[in-house]
Design a protein around this nucleic acid. Structure first.
Length: 871
RNA sequence: GCCGGAGUGGCGGAAUUGGUAGACGCAAGGGACUUAAAAUCCCUCGCAGCUUGCUGUGUGCGAGUUCGAGUCUCGCCUCCGGCACCA
């Protein structure tokens, strides 16, 4: 097919070819080494956006490249199909969430295929299908059995108007995002997964994540938030009660001047305090702006020095962390310091900087201990130092003091060393319809009764209405709601909460390991309900873990942490051999574009601007910041439009070329045209020489070629293979790999093939270029590959190899520096000895002139690069 | 506040282990082809100076190490991201 480059025509042709030949299917039985390449599956919101395009283009390059390198590649795709938008669409458009979701999936699947992505669709998963979510339920039951799923009361965001729980993200300025009612905190019974039991394992596992970006690992570590400290009992004066606190600074125990309880602390109930005061503080609980508290009238006794310490109740003390009570050391904690100043509480210095002058200076602090307001401190001293005023521990350095004091505390039975984590259990209950029903029933006699495995899946009922008010639609389905107890056969009510959609995505990578949903059901052991013998399934142990995972940084904590948690549980259940799901992680940057703003009309589409004035009001339009593409900011580019105009190959190429994968990418319409030009150029090169090239029998790889330019092209070809291979292999630097291919193309387009040998070398260069461009722009590669007379798909050929000898330059450009400054460049043959190089450098007329009769102190030679003469 | 990351031409971005700063692309300017335009091709392109070839200078700022620093060390500045009452 000659003529003009017509992307649409060839792209559809090759997409059909791939699908008919089943080219993207993962082998089930093979001796080949496996490579599991996975991109985060999308939420079927309606249509794909540029973020998807980037994510999936990156994944596709890796999958196709690995296939060409001879791996058995698993490259699946599916749908994160449960979730709120479907329910909102149901309310708004009176369409069932399932219909809305499946229509979106249908459309988006077409879009993905139009991009030419190499998915094995036989392994597609859709999380809203009962075949999929019954496994959510199965996992839930296993977790319940192991005590890893439990129900307890907790505080949640509650919208009284919608009668539902809201996620933190859905509360905007303390109001419901949907109805604008003021959101309150409500105590509600919720299901939890006990992820905290795995805090230490997940933290330790972080060290295994060597293929992850450091910052993601760090974010995981911070999220888990381990800290070592000690729990200490303070006596409550005049009662048998003990007040237990947690601190990471036992070295400051002698500096405690007051204590604070969380307003929900059980002791608060026992104290004789004004209930109004308590209510006020409770209402300010969680308010970051103010730190408030009040004196309970009660005193505690410091177990180390028997000092009498007032007990306060304060809004900033969290019930969820530590023991819900703190000791306050205003001299060495800034927040305590501010609180002490506000309520005029004593400040006692117990740690001073290590250097002696400061010790002496602060020595005078001895006199003003516990004298409120006397302290000259303007802020807390939080650094490490030396202890003073601390009984037998005075004079010790902080770290040593910590150990000694912990020892002392344990010896006298006042408390114990304690490790705390910030990680909380994972609340999975959602009062929504479009999610996995939690498989339990409530029986008046038997209480919580799990649905037996053989009765799974608990299917979402169809007879529901979506009004948008009055809570979960499941509450209105009698068929769903009223069941017989699985234990006693009596009347029971089904759980109407559904699971957080993060449950669905915590194990979907496991589901892909099985060939299709039918087979998944019958061909495995662990999914077999009747089998008490749970074994590692061969498919699973073959494919897991995922070799390369690719997705947005926004999932750095939640999804990735949940998946790690699930994989550990699966491992303990004997299902998965691996304890970490993702070997290598690539977090791609956002796709951004310039925004346009009009003072009157806010964000504008580019079409709404003419000569930098708003077409509606004539106001001068200012260029906003470059921001992540979003509908609301009117700076989105629709992939469909782009494909229509330039084709999928151009879109893919641009997105891969404009920035390295992990960095943010700034959209440039002109840049897209550049990518399109490059593909056209490639097309022209091939067709310009195709007639001549066809006459050659085969490409020869001999290096004994007479023509200088031919040698250069051959060398460039081998250098490019080396460069592109290394760029892909090393850090997935696709932008520089593509740049190298552009360089080679530039070389080819200025090359004139006269002799047969010239033609042979050119054909070789063309072939290798097509093979190397194939993972990036697969359609044009296939088309041109066919055009030069190759049989079979380009993807069925091995990735090109380079010859180190042919890639080596015969001559090198030697840089000559004098005193570190560039003074000359000379061409010398490669492989000279250091002495010869030194000689040549000094013999250069310019250099010898500069040196003149000055004395040479030293000559530094960097092989193959430069000479530096120091005079 | 704490923890990360990043600052390189008009722009996106390149630069092995410390070794020619600015690959590749975009934009811009000039030229060729054309009746004309588009497309394509060729040339120029960090800044400053003049003798147009060179000299000086240049990777956020200031020091330092080194024969040599975009890269390493120390001290600042700015931007971005994450966490944030975590005791």
């Amino acid at each position: 097919m000659q003529g003009k480059y017509n992307p649409e025509k060839i792209e559809l042709k090759w997409q059909k070819y791939w699908s008919e030949k089943n080219l993207h299917k993962a082998d089930t039985e093979t001796s080949k080494e496996k490579f599991y390449c996975l991109e985060m599956f999308p939420y079927p919101s309606g249509k794909i956006h540029m973020g998807h395009v980037r994510n999936y283009a990156i994944g596709d390059v890796i999958a196709r490249y690995k296939k060409m390198r001879g791996f058995n590649v698993l490259h699946p795709m599916g749908w994160d199909a449960f979730g709120l938008p479907a329910e909102n669409a149901a309310i708004k458009n009176n369409v069932h969430p399932a219909k809305w979701t499946y229509e979106n999936i249908h459309h988006m699947k077409k879009q993905l295929n139009r991009m030419g992505l190499s998915y094995d669709w036989d392994r597609e998963v859709t999380t809203c299908s009962p075949e999929y979510y019954k496994w959510n339920q199965w996992f839930f039951l296993r977790l319940l059995q192991k005590g890893l799923a439990y129900k307890r009361a907790s505080y949640v965001n509650w919208c009284p108007e919608c009668a539902t729980v809201l996620a933190n993200e859905q509360v905007i300025d303390d109001k419901c995002w949907r109805c604008d009612s003021v959101v309150s905190q409500k105590e509600l019974e919720q299901w939890f997964f006990k992820i905290t039991q795995y805090a230490e394992a997940l933290l330790k596992g972080c060290d295994e994540l060597i293929g992850w970006p450091e910052r993601v690992v760090l974010m995981q570590k911070n999220w888990i938030g381990k800290s070592r400290g000690v729990e200490v009992d303070f006596y409550v004066e005049g009662s048998n009660e003990k007040l237990r606190i947690f601190t990471t600074r036992p070295d400051t125990l002698f500096g405690v001047t007051f204590m604070c309880l969380a307003p929900m602390h059980p002791l608060a109930e026992k104290f004789d305090i004004n209930p109004d005061n308590l209510e006020t503080i409770k209402s300010k609980y969680g308010d970051i702006e103010v730190k408030e508290g009040f004196f309970t009238g009660q005193y505690a006794v410091n177990p180390l020095n028997n000092e009498r310490i007032p007990i306060y109740i304060a809004n900033f003390v969290l019930m969820e962390y530590g023991t819900g009570a703190i000791m306050s050391v205003p001299a060495h904690d800034q927040r305590d310091f501010e609180f002490a100043k506000k309520y005029n509480l004593p400040i006692k210095v117990v740690i001073v900087p290590k250097d002696s002058a400061a010790v002496r200076q602060c020595g005078s602090a001895e006199e003003r201990i516990i004298s409120p307001g006397a302290s000259e401190l303007i802020s807390a001293f939080e650094d490490d130092g030396v202890l003073i005023n601390s009984g037998k521990f005075s004079g010790l350095e902080c770290n040593e003091a910590k150990d000694k004091i912990i020892e002392h505390i344990e010896e006298f039975g006042i408390g114990n060393e304690k490790i705390n984590y910030k990680l909380r259990d994972w609340g999975i209950s959602r009062q929504r319809y479009w999610g996995t029903p939690i498989p339990v029933v409530y029986c008046e006699k038997c209480g919580i009764v799990p649905v037996p495995e053989k009765d799974l899946p608990v299917i979402l009922p169809e007879d529901v209405k979506f009004s948008g008010t009055g809570g979960s639609p499941l509450l209105e389905s009698d068929v769903f709601l009223n069941v017989k107890c699985f234990k006693c056969g009596g009347g029971a009510r089904r759980e109407t909460d559904t699971m957080d959609t993060f449950v669905d995505s915590s194990w979907y990578f496991v589901a892909y390991c099985f060939e299709n949903e039918q087979q998944r059901e019958k061909a495995n052991n662990f999914f077999d309900f009747n089998s008490s013998l749970i074994e590692h399934h061969p498919s699973l142990s073959y494919w897991m873990p995922v070799d390369q995972y690719i997705g947005g940084i926004e999932h750095a904590v939640l999804h990735l942490l949940y998946s790690r948690f699930f994989t550990r549980v699966l491992n303990e259940l004997g299902i998965s051999k691996t304890s970490e799901p993702f070997l290598n992680l690539l977090t791609q940057g956002m796709v951004c574009k310039e925004t346009l703003r009009c003072p009157q009309h806010d964000w504008l589409f580019p079409e709404e601007v003419k000569d930098s004035f708003c077409i509606h009001c004539g106001c001068a339009v200012t260029k906003g910041r470059v921001e992540k593409m979003s509908k609301s900011k009117k700076n989105v580019i629709d992939p469909d439009v782009l494909i229509q105009r330039y084709g999928a190959d151009t879109m893919r190429l641009f997105v891969l070329f404009a920035a390295p994968p992990e960095r943010d990418l700034e959209w440039s319409d002109k840049g897209v045209e550049g990518a399109y030009r490059f593909l056209n150029k490639l097309w022209t090169i091939v067709y310009k020489y195709i007639a001549a090239v066809r006459q050659c029998d085969s490409a020869t790889e001999t290096s004994e070629l007479p023509n200088y330019h031919t040698v250069i092209l051959l060398r460039k070809t081998h250098q490019t293979i080396k460069k592109v291979t290394n760029d892909i292999e090393k850090e997935y630097h696709f932008n520089t790999a593509i740049a190298a291919l552009m360089e080679l193309s530039n070389e080819m387009s200025s090359f004139e093939a006269k002799t047969d040998e010239d033609k042979a070398v050119l054909l070789l260069a063309i072939k290798k270029t097509l093979q190397m461009i194939a993972p990036f722009a697969p359609h044009i590669a296939e088309e041109l590959w066919e055009s030069i007379g190759e049989k079979n798909s380009v993807f069925e050929h091995d990735w090109p190899e380079w010859d180190e000898n042919l890639a080596r330059d015969e001559e090198i450009e030697l840089v000559v520096q004098v005193n570190g400054k560039l003074r000359a460049k000379i061409l010398i043959p490669a492989g000279l000895s250091d002495d010869e190089v030194k000689q040549k450098a000094q013999n250069d007329p310019k250099i010898s002139e500069i040196i003149g009769d000055k004395k040479i102190k030293k000559i530094v030679v960097v092989k193959g690069r430069l000479v530096n003469i120091v005079i």
